[in-house]
Design a protein around this nucleic acid. Structure first.
Lengths: 246, 246
DNA sequence: TCTTGTGCACTAGTATACAAGTCGAAAGAG
DNA sequence: CTCTTTCGACTTGTATACTAGTGCACAAGA
């Protein structure tokens, strides 16, 4: 979403929700760069609505950590905070491995088929070099596994943590997309879960998650304006996982 | 907060935030009963402000899961959903045990002192039979351990999950407060963490968390109007933990 | 040149008015 | 009595106007 683009909202559902979705997508895709200031009145004009629904959308996005409202000063796209991403990874490892524990060897056939289909989607997106399609399929794969636990909020929680990491993921997918590696990791996780091999499933999931931010130091140096700080790859920034053995 | 009470907000900080805090406290303490309808205009009148800040407060509370907005119909305090509580417990077990893994044997002296002080607070509150004071000290204890991981969002995440369980906790604390049991569990967790006994610390934390909802079936039968469904204690409702051994 | 003040253009926060949908009670027809 | 219809009193959603605070440009003074 270039900063000058005009959008319109449909009348059949609340404008605020539509604005949330559009802005969130634009933020995650870095079309709205971190640090960028947002003007409520400007957004209202571009969306063709009044300030009220825009404000309500911004409140929601602020609670999700995507924007920061500084009273009487302005509203800004949050810069990427490496420490926050490491936390998100930690939290995801804790939750997603707990989820694995719960579903290993107990996946129903429908979920297995769904996951295998999503793996095909990922392969297709990788061949087409469609970063966003791959991204969507990746999300859906993790969500499918989370939903298989029978816990509804689990997937939305994971999605929230994922979203925080998405901007860096987009950066790295654009430069050096490790499509094949990610796909094979997903396949390994799924196979182990289906086979009921608890240790293997856990270890694959842990490895998968711990690798997600390997591009963080490089990205923070390539785009320092997007980050609150740059990360020195030689430092101990990676020593933030659970410490559990793979 | 009885339904007819009038409140006022101070002018030195955003009204919406003050309203969020007041309503949240009232909801958690069941002063605003689950299922109760809230009127924006009524709240505005009682707080002495216009509908706008009230609406913004309600949006935030809705995102936190405390209220539900049904367009053109009304805004309601959410009823307690047992399944949601079991999820919250599952998530807490995943996250808090991961936190324990990270801090076991590595607590600094300041944190240790702080935690011991909070244990004293809990004892004092138990003696005084002050449910809310105990509740606050309990929150602070878990938060202190979470913050010791060095991860800032961890404690706020835990607090969110705790808050969902708080209404049931308040119910059980009011009828049969297991103060002493909770305190000794806290002490056992802390001692094991300080001593660096990983297995013991994990097992104590797991046990502590899994016991938190033992009063859920009783509470759901005593106050069915607060719940979306009642829980049969003989059912397998408890079989929702991670399955990890104690 | 540097400092200081002053005003203007911006910001978010709040108040108020109106629009659009929902539900129930009362009125009227059979 | 029963069913139907209509009207009105609610609800949340949105638009608009106003308030109060921030910061920057720019001019006036040393």
């Amino acid at each position: 979403m270039p900063l000058s683009t005009a959008f319109s909202v449909s009348a059949d559902r609340p404008a605020a929700n539509q604005i949330v979705e559009r802005l969130r997508t634009a933020i995650v895709r870095l079309e709205l760069p971190p640090g960028q200031m947002l003007s409520e009145s400007d957004l209202a004009e571009r969306f063709g609505v009044s300030r009220t629904p825009v404000r309500e959308a911004l409140i929601k996005l602020a609670q999700q950590g995507f924007i920061e409202v500084r009273p009487q000063r302005g509203t800004f796209i949050t810069k990427i905070r490496p420490k926050e991403l490491l936390e998100a990874r930690f939290i995801r490892e804790a939750i997603e491995t707990a989820g694995i524990e719960r579903i290993v060897g107990r996946l129903d056939q429908a979920t297995i088929s769904k996951c295998r289909l999503l793996l095909e989607d990922q392969k297709a997106a990788a061949s087409a070099e469609d970063v966003y399609a791959f991204h969507r399929a990746d999300d859906a794969f993790h969500r499918a596994l989370a939903e298989a636990t029978g816990f509804e909020r689990l997937s939305s929680l994971i999605e929230g943590e994922k979203a925080l990491m998405d901007r860096v993921r987009i950066l790295s997918l654009k430069t050096t997309p490790p499509f094949k590696r990610l796909i094979s990791q997903h396949k390994a996780i799924l196979d182990a879960v289906v086979a009921g091999d608890r240790q293997k499933a856990l270890s694959h999931m842990r490895k998968h998650l711990r690798e997600l931010l390997t591009t963080l130091p490089q990205a923070s140096r390539d785009h320092p304006q997007f980050f609150t700080e740059t990360i020195d790859p030689s430092s101990d920034w990676a020593e933030t996982d659970s410490g559990a053995p793979l």
